[in-house]
Computed example of a mutant assay.
Amino acid sequence: MTIPAPFSPFISGYTFFESPRWHDGQLWLSDFYTQQIVRVTLQGEVTPVAEVPEQPSGMGWLPDGRLLVVSMRDRRILRQEADGNLVTHADLSSVALGHINDMVVDAQGRAYVGNFGFDLMGGGTPRTATLARVDPDGSVQVVATDLYFPNGSMITPDGQTLIVGETMGNRISAFDIRADGSLGPRRDWARFGELPALTDMASVLGSLSAAPDGATLDADGAVWFADAVGHRVVRMAPGGEVLESRSTGEQGAFACTLGGPDGCTLFVCVAPDFYEHARRAAREAAVWTTTVSVPGAGRP
């Protein structure tokens, strides 16, 4: 695997990494098709954290430190108890029309969870999706609708704004977070093009100028996102100005986060593509790193 400048190798040999999180001085990752969560020291030492048989994705932590993780296929949020066991925290099967995926957890322990909206890997017809809020007691509410594959969710450092990448929508959206956890109306944080016609995946992918996947905020209020169709990570300002773009060459970029001792290491999850049949059978996923000038901020 050729690694283009300015990236450096971090870990490799996995199936498909998503939802990188910098937490307690280590990088936490979900590996889809080995069904595991791992944490990794800066020296590259990997420790398994949990097994999620129905495919792990988004992660976050409750105020008391317990881990929450998305279980994609059965549309549940799992909670890791002090003894290491995973229990059901919430069931989203009544509100999610596809696999649930990315998640961000706020300071009060409220989780905002997206879903595919359709059977992506089974060749289903694309459709819009909901965004759900899971309260600390496990209750579920739909807080936004008609989103084009909500992904890469972030919360600003003041806890007042939720930012959501719409991977199939040519846009990043923002919502005011009210005191009770409900959301104000959707507004454009950035727009790259017209909303695609949701006819078939090939047409949708062909109409995207950028496809924001896993994403992270920095201290200047910019967003770094992995462009799932552009083989790059992008730093973007509110309004849509591209401040920086770093190519991942032949590898696709599917998620990123900022971390490290000074918050200025960008960890990027790469793989040849995102197709389940190819990734499940291979061990070609990796995490690369690069150094940036502005540290991470907000959540996740």
Rank of each mutant, 00 (worst) to 15 (best):
residue 13 G to T: 11
residue 13 G to N: 11
residue 14 Y to Q: 13
residue 17 F to R: 10
residue 21 R to M: 11
residue 27 L to N: 04
residue 29 L to A: 07
residue 32 F to T: 09
residue 35 Q to W: 09
residue 38 V to I: 15
residue 40 V to Y: 09
residue 47 T to P: 06
residue 50 A to E: 01
residue 52 V to D: 05
residue 53 P to D: 02
residue 59 M to H: 04
residue 66 R to D: 05
residue 69 V to R: 02
residue 71 S to K: 03
residue 74 D to W: 11
residue 75 R to D: 06
residue 82 A to S: 15
residue 106 D to A: 02
residue 106 D to T: 08
residue 123 G to R: 05
residue 127 R to N: 10
residue 147 L to P: 14
residue 155 I to K: 02
residue 155 I to Q: 01
residue 162 L to G: 06
residue 163 I to A: 01
residue 164 V to G: 05
residue 169 G to N: 03
residue 169 G to F: 00
residue 170 N to S: 11
residue 171 R to S: 04
residue 173 S to V: 13
residue 174 A to V: 15
residue 176 D to F: 10
residue 176 D to S: 15
residue 179 A to P: 09
residue 180 D to V: 12
residue 182 S to Y: 12
residue 182 S to N: 14
residue 185 P to D: 14
residue 185 P to K: 13
residue 186 R to C: 12
residue 191 R to I: 06
residue 192 F to R: 10
residue 196 P to Q: 03
residue 196 P to G: 00
residue 199 T to G: 08
residue 199 T to V: 15
residue 200 D to Y: 02
residue 202 A to M: 09
residue 206 G to H: 03
residue 206 G to M: 05
residue 207 S to D: 10
residue 208 L to G: 08
residue 214 G to W: 02
residue 216 T to C: 13
residue 220 D to C: 09
residue 222 A to R: 13
residue 229 V to A: 04
residue 229 V to M: 08
residue 235 R to H: 04
residue 240 G to H: 07
residue 240 G to M: 05
residue 247 S to T: 14
residue 252 G to D: 07
residue 259 G to Y: 06
residue 273 D to L: 10
residue 277 H to C: 15
residue 278 A to P: 09
residue 281 A to P: 14
residue 282 A to K: 12
residue 283 R to M: 11
residue 284 E to W: 10
residue 285 A to T: 12
residue 286 A to E: 11
residue 287 V to F: 03
